[in-house]
Amino acid sequence: MKLGAFSVSLNVKDIQASQSFYEHLGFHVFGGDIAQKWLILKNENCIIGLFQGMFEKNILTFNPGWSEDAENLDAFTDIRDIQKHLKANGIGMLTEADEATEGPAHFVIEDPDGNRILFDQHR
């Protein structure tokens, strides 16, 4: 099962202060829109999303179909197949992707400690 690019999505209080902090750690802005209060930062193959006021907790994120450079992958496991596999193995869904569709979709699960994991396919 190929999960795609991995990132940590952080719920931040002050996106400008967080941007400055992570830039001092060697990250650079890779995407996003600070006016909308979200940025994607990258340092080599490490990716961090900064999100102000969009969700309550930090989230682990997988992007099936994307590389760490946000480039489309030729071969990947479709999000609906990942969801079916997880459900067949007893993993409960907080939100679900519509398995009757194709293309972009997402779902959310939670690990045993309450950490949310977002699977977000953009293509």
Rank of each mutant, 00 (worst) to 15 (best):
I34R: 10
H85V: 11
G90H: 03
H106V: 03
C46L: 09
E44Q: 14
R116M: 04
S9K: 12
G4L: 12
R80M: 04
G114H: 01
F119D: 01
F6A: 13
K57L: 05
I109S: 09
K84P: 00
A97R: 06
N11L: 07
D111V: 07
A35W: 07
D120C: 08
G103P: 00
F51R: 11
I47H: 00
Q52D: 12
E99Q: 04
G90S: 08
D33M: 03
L41Y: 01
G32S: 11
D14G: 02
M1A: 10
I48N: 07
R116A: 06
H122K: 09
L50A: 06
E71W: 00
V29M: 07
A100P: 00
N43Q: 14
N89H: 15
H28C: 11
P112I: 04
I59R: 01
G26I: 12
R80H: 07
A105V: 04
N58M: 06
P104Y: 01
Y22A: 03
A75E: 14
A100I: 00
L50I: 05
E56D: 15
F51K: 08
K87A: 14
P104T: 06
F27A: 05
H28Y: 12
Q52G: 11
N45G: 02
Q16I: 15
N43K: 15
Q19D: 13
L41C: 02
T77A: 10
A5E: 13
F107Y: 03
D98C: 10
G49K: 08
I59V: 14
I15A: 01
V12D: 02
D14P: 01
L73Y: 00
L86M: 05
A88Y: 00
F30D: 15
N58V: 04
H24E: 15
E71A: 07
A35Q: 14
Q16Y: 14
T61F: 00
F55H: 15
A105G: 09
V108R: 06
D120H: 09
L41M: 15
D111R: 02
M54C: 10
L50R: 07
D74C: 04
A5H: 11
A88I: 06
V8S: 13
G90R: 08
E71D: 06
E102T: 15
K57I: 10
D113I: 01
R80F: 04
G103A: 03
V12I: 08
S67V: 12
Q121F: 03
V8Y: 09
I47T: 01
G90K: 05
F62K: 04
I15C: 02
K42W: 02
A100D: 13
I109Y: 06
